[in-house]
Amino acid sequence: MPILEVQSLSKSYRQAGGETTAAIGNISCRVEPGEFVSFVGPSGCGKTTLLMTIAGLLAPSAGRVMVNGREVSGPPADLVLLFQEYNKSLFAWRTVLGNVRFGLEARGDHSQNAAGKARSLIDLVGLSGFENHFPWELSGGMQQRVAIARALAYEPKVLLMDEPFGSLDALTRLELEDALLGLWTKLKTTIVFITHDIEEAIYLSDRIWVLSRRPSEIVEDIPIDFSRPRNQLSTRAEARFMEMRNKIYRQISNPAAK
């Protein structure tokens, strides 16, 4: 059974003038447990809308989303969405430890060893020693690590990530990609990732869905079979990596593509 299933989903907005804008045309897809899948698409193609709808933060205009066999009608308990803007989603009034503990508290874990669990997660994302720092005392990359640890503390079956590394510098980005793959391998969480960085999507994913301009639809379903663990140098240097990149790039940049 797929852990996540999107069935004929569409989403339109009513704008201030009364006009309706179709953000998502008609999207269907299924994600198996433990998979790492990515949506790639041109900017403004409704990627964030899609993820917000899957996360139950927006209601679909038509179609439905199933998580773990249950239809989504609000934020599902087995799923958490990680935002791109870590500086807006972390709690500035909580320390690193407090932010990660929030993930545990949210699912009702107020136990004695909650602090211990939070500490080991902080260690896992490479932030030992920063437990008592406030988020704003950390660099962008470190803040996003806190947000990842907080999300993992919630122990979601599905982790949705909305361009999580989009506002980080190139080197930090590569570093976090590898950190994320390490965590994913260890924890077996299903990850649905959104990015406009084609190479990032290829590097991380088991499967890529290429989205068209809005109203967005899936125009291509590309399985990625590079062996794991992947390597920032050798994986990206493979000839097939370049082929895939070029193919997806042409699809996204071609204005005729529906």
Partner: peptide, 14 residues
């Protein structure tokens, strides 16, 4: 308050 902050609470099932 940033709407992202409230959405964070919602996605964590608060």
């Amino acid at each position: 308050i940033e709407s992202t902050l409230v959405d964070t609470g919602r996605t964590f099932g608060l």
